[in-house]
């Protein structure tokens, strides 16, 4: 395996049984993602975007072929090993933020670090750093219910980046946000990508997100239809 790739799929196939028939969600997908990529999976609903994110995020395993993430074959991982991989190396950003409502902003961001078993001092330092990235250091004591949609998503981003993972998987991260908040979020993510060299993979059909991507992979019927690289994404500088 070429070690310069963080993620590599070889002839990746995912088939879901649907009653007596079968649906092929991914059909012999071959992709590689390098460190610090800012890429996105685009395509219509049912094209296999989320299925691919699931497999790369060790939430699901392939039916055929192979997916290698951080040098570990997803199909060979036990549930516990999959959880460990997610815990150490993968951050998730969801469409609906999914913050824990009874905990403060600080505690929500702190949670992944608790799973890593870091000391209180280390946790505090990392949480504050993550909140500064998303410009919410002054809202540490707020509860999710007291935040706007944009702020909630920024907390979710802080939660995803706090452990400084190598990979962040974002599923429609701007779907519930207005244009201004979407641009703010995307600029924040781009900044994190640049400064921490985190590999981002989006699953989206939001045009605003697509304009920020440096690599756009179009999936149609579970196959890679196009894989385009942009030196200067058009979204850069928008919304300012």
């Amino acid at each position: 395996m070429d070690n310069s790739y963080l993620i590599k799929t070889d002839e990746l196939v995912k088939i879901f049984p649907m009653g007596k028939s079968k649906i092929t969600a991914l059909n012999h997908v071959n992709l590689q993602f390098k460190k610090a990529e800012f890429s996105g999976l685009v395509g219509p609903s049912g094209s296999g975007k989320t299925t691919l994110l699931n497999i790369v995020g060790s939430l699901d395993s392939p039916t055929e072929g192979s997916a290698t993430v951080m040098g570990r074959k997803i199909e060979d991982l036990s549930h516990k090993q999959g959880a460990e991989l997610r815990n150490r190396h993968i951050g998730f950003i969801f469409q609906t933020f999914n913050l824990l409502p009874v905990y403060t902003v600080f505690e929500n961001v702190e949670f992944p670090l608790l799973l890593l078993g870091l000391s209180a001092q280390e946790r505090k330092k990392k949480v504050m750093k993550a909140l500064e990235w998303v410009q919410l250091a002054d809202r540490v004591k707020s509860k999710p219910a007291q935040l706007s949609g944009g702020e909630s998503q920024r907390v979710a981003i802080a939660r995803a980046v706090v452990k400084e993972p190598k990979i962040i998987l974002a599923d429609e991260p701007t779907a519930n946000l207005d244009a201004e908040n979407s641009h703010n979020i995307l600029r924040t993510l781009e900044k994190i990508n640049r400064e921490l060299e985190t590999t981002f993979i989006f699953a989206t059909h939001d045009e605003k997100v697509i304009r920020y991507l440096r690599r756009k992979i179009t999936l149609i019927d579970g196959k890679v239809a196009r894989d385009e690289v942009f030196e200067n994404p058009v979204g850069k500088g928008e919304g300012q």
Binding site: G57, A83, E84, L85, N87, I90, F92, F111, P112, L115
Partner: peptide, 15 residues
Amino acid sequence: GEIGVRLAMGESKGH
């Protein structure tokens, strides 16, 4: 939702 997020963030089912 909370349980789902915790699983997604890498908390094992046993934990």
